[in-house]
């Protein structure tokens, strides 16, 4: 291969005279045959991630009929369309809060456990199986003939099967089942990154568990929690399969992803679909930026001093 340079890598001089050949000067700046190995991946992501996004943005301003803003004007004038944002937020925000609020105490407890691996392994299962399988499981488990209703009826807790499917709660539960383990594993990785000697010091000085949490752990966790909240929210906000399968896709759980899907694959209006996808990205970006700004307000320096 001619592109491989004649000198060994580590001998590359840091400062090179202007008169040196181009290859030597490039190498001094870190550009050589090895750097080029990153090129295929960069080009790939540019071609299949950045380009489609920009193309979608352009397409959203080029509707089949009407001016450049016709798609957005239509979206914000039809309740059928603009309501999807509120519907999705109404699902994603409570689910995110529930998942994070449940994950923090469990992660703080599991941190002290010896055999964490078993629990983390079990909790990885619903993440790996994915939302489609969780939805099918809920249909069998919570259905009118499922075990939950069997239990309620047989023990006289309810005189008729309760309806947890094909409404808001079906989607809510599916998002907790696949979202809680995800949130938990993220929080656990932040919690175990906090130096335990900090909490030990507080305990020696007489701080009770509640004070240790409020004064030591929580402030150190805030940066990680902001990222966890952002990631969990973004996932919940783009919910699709369970909103269709265990929700009410024409009513209470007509989320924004359903509107985008219908525009693209039922009306074949790719321009409108792109506009909805861009709005979806915009809402997600807005919430993430807001969370990260909040994090900036309370951030007090690096959270982890390494594992002790």
């Amino acid at each position: 291969m001619n592109s491989a340079a004649p000198l060994p890598e580590t001998a590359a001089p840091r400062a090179v005279a202007r008169a040196a050949p181009l290859r030597t000067r490039l190498r001094a700046r870190g550009l050589d045959g090895v750097t080029l190995l990153a090129l295929p991946a960069v080009l790939f992501v540019l071609a299949l991630f950045v380009y489609p996004f920009l193309y979608g943005l352009y397409l959203s301003f080029a509707p089949a009929k009407g001016g450049a803003l016709a798609n957005y004007a239509r979206f914000f004038s039809q309740p059928f369309l603009y309501d999807t944002i509120a519907t999705t937020l109404l699902l994603a925000v409570p689910v995110t809060i529930v998942n994070v609020a449940a994950a923090v105490p469990v992660a703080l407890r599991v941190r002290l456990m010896r055999h964490q691996r078993l629990l983390t392994t079990v909790l990885v299962i619903p993440i790996t199986l994915g939302t489609v399988l969780v939805a099918e499981g809920l249909l069998t488990y919570l259905g009118p003939r499922g075990w939950v209703n069997r239990l309620l009826l047989d023990f006289g807790l309810s005189d008729r099967p309760i309806r947890l499917l094909h409404n808001y709660w079906g989607v809510f539960l599916s998002l907790v089942i696949s979202g809680f383990p995800f949130t938990f594993l993220l929080v656990l990785s932040y919690v175990t990154g906090i130096d335990p000697s900090l909490e030990n010091a507080a305990a020696i000085l007489g701080a009770r568990a509640r004070a240790r949490f409020a004064r030591i752990l929580l402030p150190l966790l805030v940066p990680g929690l902001a990222i966890t909240l952002a990631l969990s929210f973004v996932q919940a906000f783009s919910v699709f399969p369970s909103a269709v399968l265990v929700g009410a896709p024409a009513g209470a759980t007509r989320v924004i992803a359903i509107a985008a899907y219908q525009a693209a694959f039922e009306q074949y209006d790719y321009s409108m679909a792109s506009a909805i996808a861009m709005l979806m990205a915009a809402v997600q970006l807005l919430i993430v930026v807001a969370l990260l700004m909040l994090r900036g307000l309370v951030y007090r320096g690096p959270a982890a001093t390494g594992k002790g």
Binding site: A38, A41, V42, V45, L46, L48, F49, V50, Y51, P52, F53, Y55, G56, L59, L231, V234, Q235, F237, S238, F240, A257, A260, Y261, A264, Y270, A273, S274, I276, A277, M280, A281, Q284
Partner: peptide, 23 residues
């Protein structure tokens, strides 16, 4: 480049899937 590689992991698949499918 690092940011470029981070983005497809942070943006949920359904959001970029629609424009990607269009392309």
């Amino acid at each position: 480049a690092l940011l470029l590689f981070l983005l497809p992991l942070l943006v949920p698949p359904f959001t970029y899937g629609i424009p990607l499918a269009t392309v």
